[in-house]
Design a protein around this nucleic acid. Structure first.
Lengths: 254, 254
DNA sequence: TTACACCTTTACGTAACGTCAATGTAAATA
DNA sequence: TATTTACATTGACGTTACGTAAAGGTGTAA
């Protein structure tokens, strides 16, 4: 049986380029070249190619393979042992890399959750505390703990993408609030949009959204100086403005 | 503190070529270029290089590193996780390679010992049988079993190098025997050299070399047609010639 | 004859530098 | 000050095992 490059390539599962390359580096020469300059391979070459591909499978370099297949006295066992040593060293190196990447990831994730917590923990606690203060023991025993638990769960399960969305919402709230604040009308379209964004933002933390809780948080923004300061970045009195807008949005007035 | 390429290179443990390459691919540009065209690096670049080398340590490609260090919003955690996946896949691949090389080695070594045994087992058995026949029960119970055991051990423990030496000795015996046979003098220098080579050859199989056993083996070469045929390749009557030479060499005549 | 599949050689691209080569500059020494 | 020595520059080729055109010749079927 005789083969052209493509036929042999298909037979062995290699590209024609590979066969030409093997010819070029002298590792597998065709049995003959026909009158048109085509490479013609015979059975012997098929067998040799199989040999070559076998060693290639083992990760042996073509240079080494060449030595193996061209020199009959080549000490294959020794070569393979050396090759195995190299592979083992490589794996050790890989293991180190993997361990390092893992460690780095762990550190980063540790930092990430810390950052998350730094960002939210205080706020969350504040929310809970204020909530409690506002609604008192009665309401807390009713659904306060539940809300707290869910909030904690949500925070812990939040993905980076979700976090990014939350941040975007935060920014949107501020920018919308700024425009709304400029109109001076808490019942206006912009102010109501800000209130709606704020509701969506809250949904990232609360499962059991209620108008009452929303209104209560809005009041808190006015009562707690830290939140007041945060929203007053938009303009002096913005916290009150947002509270008014939310109270209108929720239909609840305290 | 300002650094030229070499100073920074020494500081960070990389070559100047590496620094130029990093400049070339835009991963680490010097802080400025002085009037002579020298690259001048500052503290910021030192820090960045450390970053770069850290990721390089992790096996991250420079292309990826570039993305990491040039885009602050790059999702490093995600990138590292993907990178780790790649490393894990690589290790799996490596493990397969290693297992295959091991298997190949085992097969080869199995074949090797089989080949050894094919080559020696029959001969060894013959030796033992003949020895037994010649010396009878008495001598066999005296040291025959011991010799057999040691011979077996030696054969099994023979390294490839030792085997190669044995083969070389075999060839030397034949070529020397040929030349000696041409002289027709079993007491001559060449014949005695052949006898000595034969002794050394026997030592590879026997620990407890004795002149008697050696002389006995020599006689066996004449008695057993297979060995006679082997040595008569050198010339008709070569087995007898070798026997005579060995008998002279050992000083034992049967 | 035309189309189409298949062949050829030539040559650039890959990743991350190593290694000259040719040449200019800064610092140290005679 | 002149020279040596050390260090800088850019340019370019080499490395591995092919992938991927490009430009053009060949074989065969419709």
């Amino acid at each position: 049986m005789e083969y052209t490059v493509q036929k042999l390539g298909k037979l062995a599962g290699v590209s024609t380029r590979t066969l030409r390359y093997y010819d070029e580096i002298g590792i597998l020469k065709p049995a003959r070249i026909n009158s048109s300059g085509y490479r013609i391979y015979g059975q012997k070459e098929v067998d040799l190619l199989q040999q070559i591909l076998f060693y290639r499978e083992l990760g042996v370099s073509l240079d080494q393979i060449k030595k193996i297949v061209t020199s009959p006295s080549f000490d294959l066992t020794h070569a393979l042992k050396e090759h195995r040593d190299k592979l083992l060293a490589k794996r050790e190196q890989l293991d180190k890399l993997i361990a390092n990447v893992d460690k780095t990831l762990a550190t980063r994730e540790g930092r990430m959750t810390m950052t998350d917590q730094e960002k939210f923990e205080g706020f969350k606690q504040k929310l809970i505390d204020e909530n409690e203060k506002m609604y008192g023991e009665e309401i807390r025993s009713k659904y306060g703990n539940e809300v707290v638990d869910q909030s904690n769960q949500k925070l812990k399960n939040m993905t980076k993408e979700q976090y990014a969305e939350v941040e975007k919402l935060s920014e949107d709230i501020l920018s919308t609030l700024k425009k709304a604040f400029a109109t001076g009308d808490p019942a206006g379209e912009l102010a109501q949009k800000a209130a709606d964004l704020h509701r969506r933002w809250l949904l990232f933390y609360w499962d059991g959204y209620t108008k009452e809780a929303h209104a209560s948080v809005a009041q808190m923004y006015v009562d707690d100086e830290r939140f007041t300061a945060y929203y007053d970045k938009v303009g002096t009195g913005a916290a009150e403005f947002l509270r008014d807008a939310i109270h209108i949005y929720t239909g609840i007035k305290k």
